Structure formats: C-alpha cells, structure tokens
Computed example of a mutant assay.
Amino acid sequence: MRWLSFGGARNAKGRAGRGRQNTGRGKKTRRTATRRRLPTWSAMVQAMRLTAGLLVLLAVTGAGVWVWQSGVVGRQIDVAGAALERVAVRGGLVVRSVTVEGRIRTEPARLLGALGTARGEPILSFDPHAARARVEALPWVAQARVERRLPDTIHVVLTERNPLALWQRSSEGDYALIDSTGTWLEVDTRPFADLPLIVGEDAPRVAPSLMDLLATEPRLAQRVRAATWVDRRRWTVRLDGIESGIDVRLPETNPGAAWRRLAALDRDTNLLARDIDRVDLRLPDRLVVRPRSPGRVGGDGETAPGAPANAPRVLVSTSGQET
C-alpha cells in the first residue's frame, strides 16, 4: 500500500509539473495567436482599395447600362455612320454602275428593285447579303452572288432556273411553269406553250425524273406533248397531239425499260405510224394496242359522243407480231 501510495504521489507530482509546464506553453501560444490575428495597416489599406475599386466598377457598369438603355450609344453610332457616309460620298464612294452576269429571263427592273439601290447612293451603306436574299426570291433566280466592288460598282452573278414543263393545276386551265428541279414558278406561261404539259396532283415533284426517262430515247421524246401522273404511282404519256394523240401507258415498275422497248418496236415495225390511239406497256411481255375509232377524241379512255365505248384492241408481242 505504501508503494502504491508513494508511486501515486510521485506520479501526481509529475502530472502536476507537466500540467504547469503545459499551461505555460498554452498561454504563450494564445498570446502569439492573438498577435498574429491583429490586422496590419497595409492590409487595411489594401482592403480599402479593393472595396473602393469594386464600388467604382459597379458605378461604371451601372452608368454604362443606363447609357445603353437610354439610346445615347445608338444615336452616337448613327451619327458616326452618317458622317462616314458623307465623307464617302465626297470621296466618290457611290453606286455608279450595276453589272450582271447570267441574266436571261429575269427582268432588269425587278432585279434592280430587289437590289434596293440606285445610282448615286452611298456604296458603303449597301448590304450585299440582304440584297442577295431579295434577288434569290425572284421567280427565275435559283442562286445569286452579290458583290460590292469599290469604289462604285455592284456586281451580280445569277444562276437562273431552266424551264422544263407546264403544270396544269386545275381543269379550268390554271397553269404554272415547272423548272428542272420540280419547282413551279409564278411567271407568264404563254412564251412556253411548246413545252410538255404535266397533269396530276404532286406531278411537279416527279416530273424531272420523267423527263430524264423520256430523254433516253430522244426521237420518241420529241413527240411527247403531255403526261399524266396517275394515282401518284405511274405515268401515261401523250404523243403527237394534246387532243388526238397516242396515249402510252407506262408501268409502275421499271418504266424506263418499257419506254426503250416501245422505241425499239417503233423502229422495227413503225408501230406508232399506225392509226392507233393507245399503247399499253404495263404487261411485261407484250403491248396492248387499241386502234383509233371514228369519233374518238383520244385520251385516256375518253371518247367523243357517238363513239363506241368498247373499241377493239390488238395485242402486239415484243417481237412486233400481232396476236
């Protein structure tokens, strides 16, 4: 028990001594930390400078926003632009000529109106990009390039549309012109009366592919006067005349092969010189030919008053022999 008591006392003294030593160090550490947390005069000056700079930035930004919203900047820009235009006019930077390449059917007056400029206007105020958009909105213009060539010239390069066919939009005789891309144009169709006539809903979309197909047999294609897009799936082509020509019914599948077969048969047997009003190519191994009857107007099954409704038919094989 003494050993325990002695040891406990000694340990207690040791702990007490260490405690006093630790207490002394703690006080010294707190005093040091207190001294370190005190701001210096330079740090205070720097903080005041940062605060002042932030306030100035906010003031300048707010003033700039107010100036912009009030329209002062916009008015000053307009004034500067007007002054620049006056200087440019005095220096001879005005529109004196408009040169055009590729114009065939576009009317000069409409083209100049779309450009939106005139002789003597400041050339620096001319916007080529906006002018190009207006020019490309003209019916005959497919693409356009508009350039401002200093000191005094506007240069325009046009790519015009190629007329392909006339599209009958209604039975009342409302027509539109179709170009080589299938786009229909609101132009005067009277100068193009010799073009093939296209009939049928959605016909302009597929007309270019039909014309490419017909062109594979040029001699036969020259005789095409009209074409009807039947049920949005196949063509019936009219040869030689609108009113009393020969109808050629092309198949829905592989019409190009049938067209070439008809051309070969006509070269061999002179089939299309006969008095017929219909050739049906929808059968893959033969043609169905219908002779013309008295009183028949022609067309796809239409007959004149008094004409027989069931005219005789002649089957012609691909070898040219009648059956």
Rank of each mutant, 00 (worst) to 15 (best):
L177T: 01
V141Y: 03
R233H: 02
F126D: 10
N270I: 09
W68N: 11
E160K: 15
M211H: 07
T228N: 03
P305M: 12
N254D: 10
G81F: 03
T153Q: 12
A165Q: 01
R205T: 02
S42I: 00
R232G: 08
N11G: 14
S70D: 12
R223G: 12
I198Y: 01
R205G: 00
I246W: 07
W3N: 12
L197F: 01
A83Y: 00
H129Q: 15
L265Q: 10
P122Q: 01
A88Q: 08
R105V: 11
M44V: 11
G102S: 13
A80P: 01
L55M: 09
L4E: 10
W184I: 00
G173A: 13
D300P: 02
V94A: 04
S171F: 01
R132T: 03
G91R: 15
A207V: 00
A59K: 13
I198Q: 03
L214K: 01
A130D: 04
T40V: 07
T32G: 08
V297L: 15
R31F: 08
P291A: 14
L271V: 07
S42C: 04
G182F: 01
E302N: 03
R238N: 01
E322T: 11
L315T: 06
P204L: 01
T253D: 15
T106H: 08
M1W: 09
T228Y: 02
A263T: 05
P251R: 11
G120E: 03
T40P: 07
E107D: 11
T228S: 02
R278Y: 08
R219I: 03
S293R: 02
A215K: 14
R238W: 12
E217H: 02
E302A: 06
R290A: 14
L271K: 10
T323Q: 11
A257M: 08
D277S: 13
G245K: 01
